[in-house]
Amino acid sequence: MRLHIISFTQAGFSLSERIRDSLSHGDSDEISLAFGGKIADRDLASFAVTLSEWVQSGFHSGNALVFVGAAGIAVRSIAPFVNDKKTDPAVLVIDEKGGFVIPILSGHIGGANELARKIADAIGALPVITTASDVNNLPAIDVFAAKNNLSINDMKLAKDFAAKMLAYKDKNENDRPQFTLSVYIKNDILSLIPKCVILGIGCKKGKSAKELENFVKENLELYKIDYRSLESVNSVDQKKDENALISLANSLKLPFVTFSAEELNKITQKVSHSDFVEKTLGTDNVCERSVFAAGADELVLPKISRDGMTLAVGIRKADLKIPEDLKNFLI
Rank of each mutant, 00 (worst) to 15 (best):
G295Q: 08
N234I: 10
L230T: 05
A261K: 14
A163P: 06
N174C: 11
A40Q: 15
G111I: 02
I267H: 06
A294T: 01
A64F: 08
S77C: 12
D226V: 01
L44Y: 15
S260Y: 09
K147E: 15
K204V: 07
E278R: 03
S232R: 00
F329V: 09
V216W: 00
D237R: 02
L23N: 13
N265K: 12
K195P: 08
T310V: 08
I78P: 03
K118R: 15
R117S: 10
N234G: 08
A79V: 06
D319G: 08
K266R: 15
L105N: 05
M1C: 14
L33K: 10
V197M: 02
A167H: 05
I152C: 08
D84M: 09
L157N: 07
S133Q: 06
A125R: 00
S22K: 13
K279W: 00
Y227Q: 04
I19P: 01
A132P: 09
V91Q: 01
K217L: 14
I193H: 05
R2T: 06
D170T: 10
I225M: 02
C287E: 06
S235Q: 02
D170R: 09
R176S: 06
L150K: 07
G69M: 07
H108T: 00
T180E: 13
F259V: 07
I39L: 13
D27P: 02
T310L: 11
F81S: 12
V135I: 15
E218F: 03
V291I: 06
V75I: 15
I267V: 15
T50H: 15
I152G: 06
L181Y: 07
F179Y: 12
I5N: 03
Y227P: 01
V233Q: 01
E221Y: 14
K86P: 03
P177M: 10
P302Q: 10
T283K: 11
T9P: 05
K38I: 13
T180L: 10
M1W: 13
R20N: 02
E218I: 05
L92W: 04
Q238G: 08
D21E: 15
N214H: 07
L51I: 14
I123S: 03
V101T: 05
D88R: 04
I39G: 11
P323F: 12
A244P: 03
I109H: 01
K97M: 14
L190T: 06
I104W: 06
L245T: 07
L181K: 09
V143P: 02
L254Q: 13
E324G: 03
A293Q: 02
